[in-house]
Design a protein around this nucleic acid. Sequence first.
DNA 1: GCCAACGTTGGC
DNA 2: GCCAACGTTGGC
Length: 195
Amino acid sequence: MATKSTNRKSKSGKRSAPKKRQPAPKKKSWTAAFAPREFGERRYWLVKSEPNVFSFDDLLRKHNKTTHWDGVRNFVARNFMRDGMKLGDRVFFYHSSTGDPGVVGICEVVREACPDPAQLDAASDYFDKKATKEKPIWYMVDLRAVAQMTHPVPLTQIKTRRELRHMALLRIGRLSVTPVSLTEWNVITQMAENL
DNA sequence: GCCAACGTTGGC
DNA sequence: GCCAACGTTGGC
């Protein structure tokens, strides 16, 4: 399966002029995403994908409208996928790095996390020499398209809503997999209907 | 473990 | 293309 938005690990290169860093701001832990669930509780998430790499339309064309959400190479995103996402959870599909970024569709988790085989494939862009079959590092889930937004909800609109000001999408920098609260989910699906 | 120096993401 | 805000690497 093609690359989504990866937060892949960086590769080292040459050195040059010094740069200043800002002091680290306090970070929220997002533990609620991993908290024990009520029986039958469904949770909500958001995944990013660059539409010129893998769009929601591409997902709709896949067999069973289902794909492996592989290639995620960021530990925080991995933890949300591996430890947070459960069967039946709903997931916003977000188009990033495009002229009109925003939420374009809804998916369902149809398989919980399992090791991403690309980490063991030396020919893959997602190969990780530290990973082994016995001790995999990276995981993927399977997502199936459930519905396409009739009206995509643009990031510019999301930013205007007070109820959405704490969204992980806006708060956690550039993370490709983030939790969504039930309230946030309802606000955004409502926006999609009314746009 | 600290922290400078990278590389990457992604909105604009 | 710019650059803020991340994450990672590696010397110490």
